[in-house]
Amino acid sequence: MLEIKDLHARCDATEILRGINLQVRAGEVHAIMGPNGSGKSTLAHVLAGREDYEVTQGEVLFNGTSLLDMEVEQRAAEGIFMAYQYPVEIPGVSNKYFLKAAMNSIRKHHKQPLIDTMDFLKVLKEKMQLLGMDKSMMERSVNEGFSGGEKKRNEILQMAMLQPKLAVLDETDSGLDIDALRIVADGVNTLRSPERAIIVVTHYQRLLDYIVPDYVHVLAEGRIVRSGDKTLALELEEKGYGFLEALSPSAAAAAV
């Protein structure tokens, strides 16, 4: 589904990604871990299409098509969803209107009929219940005045409504207490399916107790320095990111 080949990207003058290679197939859940500043969030943003980052080398194929040539909204329409670490507040636009506009924009892109309002509300209510969200959140402005946990739930709600092919969760666990974490993780788990891939970007292993990954990759200084199964996350938890230093490109260079 997703093929990342030798991806280099920079923000301003700083090179952050220095040759990422990654393959994600439908049905898989990949966790990307790494210390602060390793490039985890940058990778997520580059996939979503944020313009602050400039790709200098490499390519990204999404179902065989070059992702980097697509506009942000086109990526979303093709089935890429990014759950943000810091969702934006949009005063004056109700959650309900926003979600319906998003769903119908994607349907229009695929030349599908627009969703019936009654059906929309029915599905919305269901998903909100699943995520333990109060009905009033429908009418409230997008993320405005939401607590950290409410914002994260709202991201997962959007994901549940839009049913993407590839979901990228950026530090979804940050700022969540354990109960909220469980609800959010349950929400994500109900979306696991053979047709869908999920990339979980996280600093801590904690989230991976609830969203169990098929693969874990460790990022350091803009490259994947180790890949493994879920036990790699546990190893990291135990030893800390310090043990990576031996693996990092700069440490290797220093050793030479």
Binding site: A48, G49, R50, E51, E71, V72, E73, R75, A76, A77, F81, M82, Y84, P87, V88, E89, I90, V93, Y97, F98, A101, A102, M103, S105, I106, H109, Q158, L162
Partner: peptide
């Protein structure tokens, strides 16, 4: 905010209008 709306599939001009 425009970027956020676009990343949910909403075209740029509709995002601005909203």
């Amino acid at each position: 905010a425009i970027y956020y709306l676009r990343s949910r599939g909403i075209p740029a001009d509709l995002a601005r209008t909203m």
